[in-house]
Amino acid sequence: MTNHPTIQLPNHPTTQRLLEVKNLHKYFPIRKGFFRKTIGNVRAVDDVSFFVNEGETLGLVGESGCGKTTTARCILRALTPTSGEMLFRPKAGQTVDLAKLSRQGLRPLRPQMQMIFQDPYGSLNPRMTLFDIVGEPLLVNGMKNRKERTERVAEILRLVGLRPEYMQRYPHAFSGGQRQRIGIARALALHPRLVVADEPVSALDVSVQAQILNLLLELQKRLHLTYLFVAHNLSVVKHISDRVAVMYVGKIVETATTQALFNSPKHPYTAALLAAVPVPDPRVRTGNVELKGEVPSPANPPSGCYFHPRCGYAVDICRVQAPVFREIVPSHFVSCHRADELKLQGIA
């Protein structure tokens, strides 16, 4: 464990992949009856593939129940995936498949992957002081010397914009935004390389959201962090991401650079999502493109393309055959039979 934050300038070759997820599946069995017989599966994550380059932010968007949180939890191995590969390139050594590692094998990798949670109230233990909260990961990973730990905690607190004098206080003394800073400090204590942020600003007030987004961007530059940013708010995702992946009923339907995805979406679902966002300008009327129906249940998804019952462009093939996830223009992936012919409206 080093004592100094690894402040590195972004002179890294940014094309290096830190994480590559291939054909990830996570099924939750539905059991019934006295013998708990499995009668079906909830396909929470259903054949998901994507990659995250070192130093970039990949935004993962989708509506509730689409499997974005389950994907994030699988990567951190808070859940064990049903099948698939999750190739992670550690700081030193060979690329490993996180899906195949045992609990023991994961331990040395855990410090390199950390998580920021949504709820700044539920994610901090009210009986622990700031020093305990931020210092615990250090203690667990072998920093036994209390003085050393105090110094490191103070350093991290300064990094996230909190005063080190607050170290002996309890979480209840802080506002929502400050608590989220504590959560970020805890995630950064061990110099992680991959930070999974699951809806880190959606529980915060509008005037505080901007502070946390700025902090995340600044920390990324200073510490050369890689973010997997899970959120449902498209404005927030656009603001923070280099690339965006859109999920729908357990599948990724489109991945592209932020600009490409927002300017020229290739999947009808992405276009519908973009059209549904209420723009804070009364002179621009949004929400005119209405998506009929509701998100189907991942326990009983429709045939063919999962989006076809709600899609205004669906043709016969969409009802019977699932589209292939393919690269339609360089680094723009989409799974739609009609992606080549459709002219979809984005946001200029």
């Binding site: 509008v206 005037s207 959201q209 404005s235 656009k238 603001h239 923070i240 966002v277």
Partner: peptide
């Protein structure tokens, strides 16, 4: 004015610092 400036919008430029309102809502 500050509230309107501080919200990220789907129409605004990505990955730039947002103007913020300092501090937080008092108890």
């Amino acid at each position: 004015q500050a509230l309107l400036r501080s919200i990220p919008s789907v129409n605004s430029a990505p990955r730039v610092n947002l103007p913020t309102i300092s501090g937080s809502i008092p108890h």
